[in-house]
């Protein structure tokens, strides 16, 4: 029932959204801190937390304005309580608590990972559990079953790096700058994976591992010499083409590994609905190949790019279906499913 205000500050995106009945986005304002962290080559937690505090007031105004809503229209405030960066989560939860006190509105703490699954329900309003989900981001590569609203069971996860982390590290090795994922995606479009084959990680069961692949790329770059990353054109070939081929090959190995397990999970748990979501689900090859791998065994939902990356609409949606409405939200940076 009603209108939910969502607040998301778990990492380097500040976002406020208004969602109706857990399904219809009235506004979803996102401020990305990419430029703030660019010079550091990664997210600096303290800078991120400061920025969340400074941006939230304006984003709240924009979200209310965009939805044409007044504070008195809001039935529930949903705020990310984890997983994420401690200082960042504290800012979002604190502001949520303050607003809830000001408006006498119920408040609920939302699991950010659940939010990534609920993003798919914003993209497809008729989507209902049971479903099989693959959440891939900078911190997670998780295969989950969702038998009903508010219930998740992890059936596969990564042993070491998350898929997004692997992309970021590979991009750094290739000298592609920050953020690495989108840069690698773009470069891979001009490359040919077959010219620079890399191993495709494979563990038994539904577990992932990407650290071996990362090492394989490191050794390959060492064998090829400095010329590849330094953008100089060696006499025996075009280094930028080798780089593109390596990007394509790395991407291919990660994507096929992700989908191999999704395929196995779908065989073991034949659910009618499949969701692939999270920041890495913005990857071009993953989007294309996921559709092919799932085929007609299930209906696949991949949220549009702006709902794959972190946003508050997905938090509002997850909050709408959450059964625990509480007074004091406990921040948990290492919250699991």
């Amino acid at each position: 029932m009603g209108l939910t205000l969502g607040i998301e500050t778990s990492c380097d995106e500040t976002s406020v959204a208004l969602v109706e009945d857990g399904r219809r986005i009235l506004s979803n304002v996102v401020h990305s801190q990419v430029d703030l962290h660019k010079g550091f080559g990664g997210v600096v937690p303290e800078l991120a937390a400061r920025d969340h505090l400074e941006r939230l007031p304006q984003l709240l105004d924009l979200a209310l304005e965009g939805a044409g809503a007044k504070p008195t229209d809001i039935d529930l405030i949903a705020v990310t309580r984890g997983p994420g960066l401690a200082g960042c989560l504290l800012v979002g939860v604190g502001v949520g608590e303050g607003l809830a006190a000001a408006w006498s509105t119920p408040l609920t703490g939302v699991n950010h990972l659940w939010g990534h699954i609920y993003a798919a329900m914003l993209a497809r309003p008729g989507l209902e559990p049971p479903l099989l989900g693959l959440v891939v981001s900078g911190a997670h590569s998780d295969l989950v079953r969702m038998p009903e609203h508010g219930r998740f069971e992890v059936i596969g996860r990564t042993r070491d790096d998350a898929a997004g982390e692997a992309f970021d590290k590979a991009a750094r090795m290739l000298g592609l700058g920050y953020p690495g994922g989108p840069a690698l995606d773009q470069l891979a479009r001009t490359g040919d994976a077959r010219r620079q084959p890399l191993p495709q990680p494979s563990l038994p069961g539904l577990e992932y591992s990407f650290s071996g692949l990362k090492t394989a790329l490191l050794y390959r770059l060492r064998d090829l010499g400095d010329t590849v990353t330094e953008q100089r054109h060696p006499p025996d070939g075009d280094s930028s083409q080798i780089k593109a081929d390596l990007a394509a090959s790395f991407e291919h190995s990660v994507v096929e590994s992700l989908l191999e397990k999704l395929d196995a999970a779908l065989e073991a748990h034949p659910y009618p609905e499949v969701v692939v979501s999270g920041g890495v689900a913005a990857n071009t090859l993953l989007r294309k190949r996921a559709a092919e791998v799932v085929g007609d065994r299930a209906r696949l939902t991949m949220p549009p790019l702006e709902l794959c990356t972190d946003n508050a609409a997905m938090i509002a949606a997850a909050g709408h279906y959450s059964t625990s409405v509480v007074g004091a939200v406990v921040v948990d940076p290492s919250l699991g499913w």
Partner: peptide, 19 residues
């Protein structure tokens, strides 16, 4: 303190904005 400071300042901000 790291945690306390953020909790109080963010709560105060949310309260002031809300009212």
């Amino acid at each position: 303190s790291f945690t306390g400071l953020r909790v109080g300042v963010a709560f105060g901000l949310g309260l002031a904005m809300g009212l």
